[in-house]
Amino acid sequence: MALSTKAKKLVAEITKGDLKLGDLKKRGAEIKKDHDLAMELWSTGEYYPRLLASLIFDKKLLAEEVIDQLAADMLEHDLKERSQLADWFMANQLAKDKRLAALMTTWEENPSPILRRLFWYHQARLRWVGQTPPGNSAELMVSLEKNLATAEPEVQWTMNFCAGQIGIHEPKFRARCIKLGKALGLYKDEHVSKNCTPSYLPEFIRIEVAKRE
């Protein structure tokens, strides 16, 4: 896609090398919504322009086939970048629209690991935002016990996070989530920075439950 003068200037501005994510968010807040510009930025294939695009898409124009293509494009990036792109896209677009949020609930078995990541992240989010957890936790637990061990890295992390949120917010599943974490040992040896919560399920659940007591 040939870039407009506006898009070229913006790409030059945000790819200087010293930009912080907070600066991108400020830029996105200034632009607000500009779907055509977002598509231009996305077409560059570059990380920062795509992050900014994820802030300024028009939700009404995000048809399912467009989302499928964006998810496929994210796989061009390394694990860290594509995970960040997916999470910003969910937080700033999908989770803020009832139609798109409903669409996320259909992605558990989607061929795209990006969309499966977002399915699980959305399910986790439904539990940590303070509302009554949805009534599908028993079904999710069956899927977690069956598939968590072998999921792709970007999907596995959000599945594990969702299991943690179920264990934290739904006491009847807590022991089962802890047992799953112990059995798999995922993230048990992960280095955790000071004041950060570990991803290892038994510790994650223990610490977060204690905060709420």
Rank of each mutant, 00 (worst) to 15 (best):
S4L: 06
K6D: 12
T15C: 14
T15M: 06
K16E: 13
G17Y: 12
K20A: 14
K20Q: 15
L21C: 09
D23M: 10
K26A: 14
K26G: 04
G28Y: 03
G28F: 03
K32S: 11
K33L: 04
M39F: 04
E40M: 08
W42K: 09
T44W: 03
E46G: 08
E46V: 02
R50N: 14
L52K: 06
L55N: 05
K60M: 09
L61K: 15
L62Q: 03
E64V: 10
Q69T: 14
L70Y: 13
A71I: 00
M74G: 00
D78M: 08
L79S: 09
S83N: 10
D87R: 12
M90P: 00
N92Y: 12
L94C: 05
D97M: 04
K98E: 15
W107S: 00
N110F: 01
S112V: 03
S112K: 02
P113E: 11
I114H: 03
R116L: 03
W120F: 13
Y121V: 07
A124L: 01
L126H: 05
R127T: 01
V129D: 13
T132A: 09
P133S: 08
P133M: 07
P134Y: 08
P134A: 10
L140H: 15
V142G: 09
L144Q: 05
L144V: 07
L144E: 02
K146P: 02
T150Q: 14
P153N: 13
E154P: 00
A163Q: 00
G164F: 05
I166M: 15
G167V: 01
G167F: 01
F173K: 01
R174Q: 11
A175I: 01
K179H: 12
K182N: 14
A183V: 06
A183R: 13
G185Q: 07
K188H: 07
E190P: 00
V192P: 08
Y200M: 09
A210W: 00
K211L: 10
K211V: 06
R212H: 12
E213G: 11
